[in-house]
Design a binder for these strands. Sequence first.
RNA 1: GUCCCCAUCGUCUAGUGGUUAGGACACCGGCCUUUCACGCCGGCAACAGGGGUUCGAAUCCCCUUGGGGACGCCA
Length: 479
Amino acid sequence: MTAVRTRFAPSPTGVLHLGGLRTALYNWLFARRHGGEFFLRIEDTDRQRSSEAHTKGLVEALGSFGLDLDGEPLLQSSRVERHREVARALLERGAAYRCYCTPEELAAMREEQRARGEVPRYDGRWRDRAGPPPVGVKPVIRFRRPDAEEVVVRDWLHGEVRYRNSQLDDLVLLRADGSPTYHLSCVADDHDMGVRQVIRGDDHLNNTPRQLQLIEALGWEPPEYCHLPLLLAPDGRKLSKRDEATDALSYLRAGYLPEAVLNYLARLGWSHGDREIFSISELIECFGREGLGASASRLDPDKLNWIGQQHIKTAAVDILCEGLRAQLESIGLNPEDGPPLEKVVEAWRERAETLAGMAKAARWAFSHEVELAEKAARKVLRPAAREPLAAARAALAGVAEWSAPGIHACIAETAESLGIGFGKLGQPLRVAVTGDTVSPPIDTTLDLAGRARTLERLGAALGYIEARAAAAAGSAAQG
RNA sequence: GUCCCCAUCGUCUAGUGGUUAGGACACCGGCCUUUCACGCCGGCAACAGGGGUUCGAAUCCCCUUGGGGACGCCA
């Protein structure tokens, strides 16, 4: 097997989006799988649209997902001298030439071609032009496309893709201001970095024949290519950059575990038998080009949620605690002012899809007041619940050890003495303490709320029932 | 417009000439249960259409349709 060296080469014109993250992931997985190297190259040759902030953001985002780099990120802009050198070499050996067309002239040319129903492409008018160049026009350097019949791209997913050479034109290598363009930079950098596998988006497939010709003209060894299909929005449309769901980091902010996002992304366009859940190391173990699919896939939030939950179920407690802490803080709650986070995590690890969801569901264990959900209160905190609640409150006040088993015994005893089922007592308690009808098992719930909060809220609930009874009596008397 | 890519349940996919077309998410039942969830059992549900090749096509070829991409002194 040849050496494995992959790279992710985004342009710093925005945040890291999901499609980019998946491309990075596949490159990373492939390198890690084969003990190769994974590089990051920032394609910032378009200074107009590139920004340092985005570069930083890209590097940090990859780090947040745990995709570690070999070596420092390479800024393409730092290599323009080398790119010019390559262009000069091509010029010297006649594989490139100067073109003195103005942008206006080119635009007019394309317009005419389009009008004639032709494919707009440079017609090579300066290819072999002799004589003096026009004054006042700075030339660009164009690549002299070779005269082959066709160019064949060998791709992991698409096999041999054939392009008629006549469809290609003489691409610009160096702009009039001397700055290199994408194809030149990309080819030169990949070569100099020793990149052997180019795994990138499908949108580059049509660029590949040109790059292949360039590589050939330079006498270099072409890398292997893999053009990944696109990621689509859930509705099947193209993923919009303005869409919040496009920002890879937004999933971390929403409380998904990084490995859950990676697991989901990995399975989107790649499969390994019937297997759905992978840890990062399992992904590295299993990942291979055999499992790659060639068709575009849609994002499915439901499936992401399910995978998110599967990972929370098995994640390490301290990781979960750390994430939960951040999520609690972000909704204005003090993680110290409540039960130990490990307990919260254990209570919810099988019922949360995200850490944000967990924090939200557990907010009653950290907040001072509990908001009664109107529907739940109306349904459960009825006059009939008054006596059981009062009895439970009295009994709970005297529980020797405030723990789930202790609480359980206490509630069971109270229910029995009242001649009602455990569940009959559980729901009023739950609504009183958490404000709603859904929470972990009631003993655990009360344990998490703590004795003080529990007793206080039971008192409040009793008050609520009183008030309601009074109101009912009032309206009955009036009617 | 030209070129290129893609096409199996609603979604992600398995399948590589002979399968009752498998799994997962979602959805619908049921079990478990102290609410919710987890878990378990069951159900619904697909080879885009048309031609070939073949004893036999989801699998190979062609066309159509549909979706996507590329056609810059952007990357």
